[in-house]
Design a protein around this nucleic acid. Structure first.
Lengths: 149, 149
DNA sequence: ATAGGTGCAAAAAGTTTGCACTGTT
DNA sequence: AACAGTGCAAACTTTTTGCACCTAT
C-alpha cells in the first residue's frame, strides 16, 4: 500500500458508505501519511494544531476510527495505557519494545506469520489483524542493568 | 506455577522489598487465584464487593501492579480500551479474539515461541513477556457473516 | 515507633458523545 | 434540501495519586 493508494482506498470507502469527503478528513489522512514510523493520536493532534489548521481532537479520533476500519492504520502497540499506531504501508512485521527506554525495534518473521495462519485454519478463525509484542530490555538497557546489579 | 507457589512467591517478594503482607493484599491474591480463566480488574473489585469484604478499588489496582511485576498475573489482551488478565499458571499460550462476539480462544504453539527467542537473540533483546493477539471472526461469527452478505 | 498501606475522593489520561451549527453531495 | 460531519464541552472509562488515618513489622 502506498500513499496515493491509501488515499484512493479512503475515498472509495467514504463513497461506498455514503459518507463525506471533508477537508478535515483529508487533512488528518495527509498528516498521517506524512508521518514516518510509529505515532500516537496526540502526535497527530499536535502536528495539526502547530500548522494552525482547524481540525478538532474529536475529528482526529473519528477519522482514525475510519482509517482503522479500512486497514490504513493499525494499532501495533498497547503499552502503559497508550496506543501506538502505524501506517499499514510496509509488509507486516512485529515489535520488540524496551520497557526501560521505550525503544521500539521492528522485526519480520515469515515463519511466525505462517504458523499463525495454520492455527487460524485449525480453529476456523478468520483473522483480520494481529499484533505480537515482545516486551523486555533492549541491548543497551540490558547491559546497563548488568552493571547496576 | 501453582496456587500455593504463587502465594509463596508473593510473600517472598513482599519480604525482599520490605513491603507488608496485609489482609487486603491477601484477599486480592486469593480472589485472583480462585478465578478461572481470563478476568478484568473490575471483575475482582466486584467479586470482593459482593463478599462484603473491605478492599478498595485503589488497593486492588495497587496489588495487581505488584502481581504483574512478580509475574503472577499477565496482561494478555488489550482490546477496546480494556485490559484482560490471566494468572500465569499454565504454560505460555496466545489468543484468538473474536471481534464480533468477544470469544477468546487459547492456543499453544511452541514453534512460535522458539522463533521469538531466536529473534530476541539476534537483537540482543532480553524479553520479559510477550503477547500475541490474533483478532478476527470465530468460526460461528464468520459463518453468520457469510449468510448476511 | 516507624515505615509502608489503605480508603476516599479527586485527578489524570485517553477516548467517546450529545448537540447545535456547518458543509458535502 | 437532506443528511452527514464538525467543534465544543461534557461525559465516560480506566487507572493513578494526595492525604489523613491505620497497621504490620
Amino acid at each position: 500500500m502506498n500513499k496515493s493508494f491509501a488515499k484512493k482506498e479512503f475515498k472509495k470507502f467514504i463513497k461506498e458508505k455514503g459518507l463525506k469527503f471533508t477537508s478535515q478528513r483529508e487533512k488528518v489522512l495527509d498528516e498521517i501519511l506524512n508521518t514516518k514510523g510509529h505515532f500516537e493520536i496526540e502526535d497527530i493532534v499536535q502536528k495539526i494544531k502547530n500548522k494552525n489548521v482547524n481540525v478538532s481532537r474529536a475529528t482526529v479520533y473519528r477519522t482514525l476510527n475510519i482509517l482503522k476500519e479500512i486497514g490504513i492504520v493499525t494499532e501495533v502497540i498497547k503499552f502503559n495505557n497508550k496506543t501506538i499506531y502505524e501506517i499499514s504501508l510496509k509488509e507486516h512485521h512485529d515489535h520488540l519494545i524496551c520497557t526501560n527506554c521505550g525503544k521500539i525495534i521492528e522485526f519480520q518473521e515469515k515463519e511466525i506469520e505462517e504458523l499463525q495462519d495454520k492455527i487460524c485454519e485449525i480453529y476456523g478463525f478468520k483473522p483480520t489483524f494481529h499484533r505480537l509484542e515482545i516486551f523486555g530490555l533492549c541491548k543497551d538497557c540490558a547491559s546497563k542493568e548488568d552493571i547496576i546489579q
